[in-house]
């Protein structure tokens, strides 16, 4: 099988994985990037959201073969637990999530939104995150925290 070159978090990798493999499975199993979660495998919950050439996509519905020519960014491209991105730090401080299983996907949806639209309205934020199901938080603190992030311009740092 022909090799596929995949570009993840700034690095290029060659793989001979089946090009039909969902990107989410490849990231988790082959690259050990387990921050990308799989909550449904059908594009319904958004837990597996990554950025593909700057756009939020459900990586469970992107076949590996299609990523050629695209840059994939996962939650691991931001800060680790000891050097969190200011957005991540704010989400922790404000209790914006609880179980955390949806959180990497939420962060990736948020990052892609703020890069394209640094001053989103409440509606813009809700539209961007409608695909990210969260069962714990009721989204209230998440919405409040994002408003604060936007107000403080944390994403521009």
């Amino acid at each position: 099988m022909a090799k596929i070159q995949i570009h993840v978090n700034g690095l290029k990798h060659d793989t001979d994985c089946d090009p039909a493999t969902p990107l989410a499975v490849f990231l988790r199993e082959e690259m050990n990037l387990r921050g990308t979660k799989i909550g449904c495998g059908n594009g319904e919950c958004g837990a597996c959201t990554v950025a593909m050439s700057g756009r939020a996509v459900c990586s469970c519905l992107v076949p590996l073969g299609r990523t050629v020519g695209h840059h994939i960014e996962t939650i691991e491209s931001l800060g680790g637990p000891d050097d969190l991105h200011p957005i991540q730090r704010k989400l922790v401080e404000r209790g914006a999530f609880q179980c955390g299983f949806c959180t990497p996907g939420v962060v990736m949806s948020l990052i892609t939104l703020l890069r394209r639209n640094p001053k989103p309205t409440d509606t813009d934020i809700r539209v961007a995150l409608q695909g990210n199901l969260c069962r714990c938080s009721g989204y209230v603190k998440l919405l409040e925290t994002i408003s604060e992030i936007v107000r403080e311009g944390l994403h521009e740092r």
């Binding site: 969190l84 991540q88 989400l91 955390g100």
Partner: peptide, 9 residues
């Protein structure tokens, strides 16, 4: 557990 969760670790 916040920092570990929000960073995917």
């Amino acid at each position: 557990e916040g920092p570990a969760k929000v960073s995917g670790q």
